[in-house]
């Protein structure tokens, strides 16, 4: 279980997170929604340990990671898998090498074992036979799949997705969502996803948390969020223009 308590972060004069509280139950898919530039990615980076908060704590299974540095933080990260917004594939390496990279550098597995697991991982995301291509040679949707394969190949306990479907057409969005759902059912990892695919995201989320003005405005299972009476949430999920309800 990941627990966030009173997380506060400013960049210069701009306060992005203002005492945010959130709980992510183990083994579930939690999706964080909210306006663009509203701090969703900043929140995610705190969970991964890429940013350090001004105040507040992040606890992973009871271990506080906010004060950790270096090796201690790396130990927590051994259990993580992260799918970055643009995929963040190493563009000097072929797709298969990208997927193999954490196995080789992190787990130091023997070569045949790496080859076997890379093939299995590429098969799972429907990209068998594409391993020899460079990231620049494949489409955006394929890059996201390779990124997912790379994040999952080490069989992490917790997987973070930073807008895994931005820039994809609606059909591909659904394909990626169902891929994530399938993989989740297979590996039972804890998933934290940042997304603004409304309403598609309600199909795969166990919990949805709405981030607004640096705090979680509302959190709950998809039906509860969809039926919410909170004007901020209603406005966001119906995509109404900002001045419609006179905020």
């Amino acid at each position: 279980m990941i627990k966030v308590q009173g997380l506060t972060k400013s960049f210069g004069r701009q306060q992005v997170l203002r005492g945010l509280d959130l709980e992510v139950p183990t083994g579930s898919i939690t999706v964080i929604i909210g306006r663009s530039g509203g701090g969703k990615s900043v929140l995610l980076k705190h969970l991964i340990g890429l940013l350090h908060p001004d105040a507040g704590r992040v606890l992973v299974d009871g271990v506080e990671i906010t004060g950790l540095r270096g090796r201690a933080l790396d130990e927590i990260r051994q259990r993580y898998g992260v799918v970055f917004q643009g995929g963040a594939l190493f563009d000097s390496m072929r797709c298969a090498e990208n997927v193999a990279f954490p196995l080789r550098e992190k787990l130091h597995l023997p070569r045949p074992e790496i080859v076997r697991r890379v093939e299995a991982a590429l098969h799972q995301v429907g990209l068998e036979g594409m391993g020899a291509k460079y990231p620049a040679e494949i489409s955006g949707g394929m890059r996201k799949r390779v990124a997912i394969a790379r994040a999952l190949v080490t069989e992490p306990e917790i997987v973070f997705f930073d807008e895994p479907t931005t820039g994809l057409d609606p059909i591909l969005v659904n394909t990626i969502h169902h891929l994530i759902l399938d993989l989740h059912q297979k590996f039972r990892f804890t998933a934290v996803m940042v997304s603004h695919e409304i309403p598609e995201i309600f199909e795969i989320a166990d919990t949805v948390a709405m981030l607004h003005e640096g705090r979680i405005a509302e959190v709950g299972p998809p039906p509860a969020i969809q039926a919410s009476s909170n004007p901020v949430v209603r406005q966001f999920i119906r995509g109404e223009p900002e001045n419609a309800e006179g905020r």
Partner: peptide
């Protein structure tokens, strides 16, 4: 620089490398 802005460096960091 490109590896930084496309989060490839972050990807290395979160792989504990």
């Amino acid at each position: 620089g490109i590896m930084r802005i496309t989060e490839q460096i972050d990807a290395l960091t979160v792989m504990a490398l």
